[in-house]
Each structure stands twice: as C-alpha cells, then as structure tokens.
Amino acid sequence: MAARLMQFERLKIPELLLVSPKKHGDQRGFFSETFRADSFAAHGLEVAFVQDNHVYSAQKGVLRGLHFQLAPHAQGKLIRCERGAIYDVGVDIRVGSLTYGCHVGVELSAENWRQLWVPPGFAHGYVTLEENCEVIYKVTDYYTPECDSGLAWDDPALGIDWRLAHADITLSDKDRKHPGLARCASSLSLWSVGNL
C-alpha cells in the first residue's frame, strides 16, 4: 500500500531522491501523505526528522543557500514547495566521493507536488521562480549555529545554472559571503565518504 502512495526516483547523484506523493482529490479539494516512514525505509532511508521549517519568499529570484551543517549536527532535508515554484539544488560535498562537487537541480512546485531528499554530506539551496513562494522542509538534526556553514552559490567550480540572471537574484548578507568549494576543503574533510 505505501509504495502506491509515494513514488521515489534516484537522480544523477543516486543519494538524492525525487519523491512524488500521490494526491487524492474530489470536489472538496485533496488529501496527500507527504511523508511516510515505511515508504522511506523501503528505499533504504531510515530517517528520523526532528524539526520542520517553513519559509516564505515574497519576490521571484530570492536565493537561499548553499547551506549545510557540519558534524556532529549534520542535517538531511526533505524539501517541498507548497506555494509557487522553486529551483532546488543539492551539491555533493563528501570528500572522496565520485560525485564530489557535482550537483543536481530539480523544479519543485505546488503544481508538480514533488519533494527532494537531500542527505547529510550535501549542501542545499534554492531560488524562487515565482513571487510569493512558500517552502516547507523537514530536517534530521536541529539547527545548530556553531555547525552552520555554506558554499558560494555562484562558485564557478560548481557550475550551477540557477535559471535566472545574476542581476535578478536576491541574497541575504550571510549567503553573499560564503566561500567557494576550494576554500572549504579543510572543513569538508569531515564529510569524507568513509565517515558517512
């Protein structure tokens, strides 16, 4: 039964999963199970979420990221867009991984109802493709300021096409100051494949 309620697709980096919950609708509206532990477990993901975050962005072109938390408070994230549309990106920061420094991007929207699973060992960010976007995401560890870190969204080494011109992107002061991948190498050694 659980498998019919939620579809899972492994992406170019197989640790990143696109999750598509089913919607059951009638004249009243719809019902959808947006997370099921048994469905995740059936795909090898034994996850325990401890915090839900809800983010509103008024403008198109708001970019949040690229964010991650260092050990011992690494976070896995399950992201969905419940209003509007975003381009969501996960970047592999696991030193020694065959896909280190590579990324996958997908569009998540209220219309397509898809979610992206981004495990620990990945940086995450998204840009709003419409005005008035709301994003909800579940995380596997609590926000911990001393472990909070990030990568430059426009690092040429990452080569991310955010689908918008740089002049149309709005960033926080904090996100504007994140270093590139090469400058993060020493802290990222905690993400070596053997440690995950």
Rank of each mutant, 00 (worst) to 15 (best):
Y137P: 00
G159L: 10
W162P: 00
C147G: 03
N132P: 00
A157N: 13
F122Q: 02
W153V: 04
A165C: 08
L129Q: 09
S172L: 10
W162H: 07
W162R: 04
T144H: 14
N132Y: 10
H166A: 14
H166F: 12
S149W: 12
L158Y: 05
Y126C: 06
D141E: 15
L164Y: 05
D161L: 13
D148K: 09
Y142Q: 05
T128V: 07
W162S: 06
I160Q: 09
G150V: 07
C133Q: 01
H166K: 15
T140Y: 09
K174M: 09
D161A: 12
G159P: 10
G125F: 03
V139A: 07
I136F: 08
A123I: 10
A157M: 14
Y143G: 03
Y142E: 07
Y137K: 03
E130H: 06
L129I: 11
F122L: 06
E130M: 12
D175P: 04
D155G: 05
A152P: 00
T140K: 06
P145K: 12
R176Q: 12
L164D: 07
D173Y: 12
E146Q: 15
T170P: 00
G121M: 07
E134F: 08
L164T: 06
Y143A: 10
G150K: 01
H124A: 04
I136D: 06
L151T: 04
F122W: 05
D175K: 09
E130Y: 02
I169T: 08
Y137V: 01
A152L: 08
L171M: 13
G150A: 09
Y142T: 00
H166V: 02
L158N: 08
G125I: 03
L151F: 02
L158S: 04
D155L: 07
P145I: 06
T140M: 11
D168H: 13
N132W: 04
R176E: 10
A152S: 15
T128Y: 04
N132V: 01
G121E: 01
P145Y: 06
P156V: 07
T144S: 14
